[in-house]
Amino acid sequence: MNDIDMQKEALSLLPRRLASAVMRGASLRQGVFNEIRMRIGMPLCITGRGVNIPCGVVCSKEDVDYTLRALCGNSLYSHSETIREGYIAAPGGIRAGVCGRAVVERGEIVSVTDITSICIRIPRRIPGAADELYKMLKASSFRSGILIYSRPGIGKTTALRELTALLAGGEAPLRVALVDTRCELAGGLGGCLTVDVLSGYPRSQGIEIALRTLSPEYIICDEIASREDAFAIASARASGVPIAASAHADSLDELLSSEFMNVRGVANAFDVFVCLKSRDDCGRYETDVAYGVDLSSVCAQ
């Protein structure tokens, strides 16, 4: 699916009057948008090239319910687990963040009802966005692990997606295992023949299964955040398979102070740390690169 198809797919999830409003709003930004935000009683808003554009129509409860049904394929129950975690993975790699009223039992969210906000994120292919990252890995004969970090919305997922396409493409494609926990990383990667997509698997289990059953030459996963993820990554690296992953952090200090970075073995799992600072209209990133960061000071166990 190309970007236009993705946008059409996203618009098909909206009631007709909202879809028209999005088209009108997007025309102000040369038709480019990658997020659609709906909140009950508030104006519909789209985000294109980092700019938020109100579309001038107010979302009703019926609009949100309609979109929710469309996102779930009229089967809310089949997405109950992911709704509990705050998102719905729709076909084509489109992911929608949802929030409403959480029902909590013994400190755990058991379900979410009365959904009031939906943020539809449209995955984009930006060929060339990961060229620099690919060169870094190629220089080490694809033996280096790479951790991409930035604040939300800069394009970590896009960078990983493009990196996957490069690693699994070209003249000597690698066997890549893509652990797509939130079902948004693999969107638009239909043409890559040597990518095994573990869609919806919990990250740590996905990495473990990929290692045991798929004999990957490279593992890619998105948004590591827990100690379990870090243990799985350390274990994969100890097995000799490099990993490319992403994490939320605005600086290297913030990244190193996160809980998962305290896990023993993570120090060796990543050889390159790339901070995505911003991205221009052509998809080129402004980056900060750190090689072989000494993590011994933060490794507690």
Binding site: R69, L76, Y77, S80
Partner: peptide, 8 residues
């Protein structure tokens, strides 16, 4: 049908 969670 389809509007609720599994138990419902």
């Amino acid at each position: 049908l389809g509007l609720g969670y599994r138990d419902e």
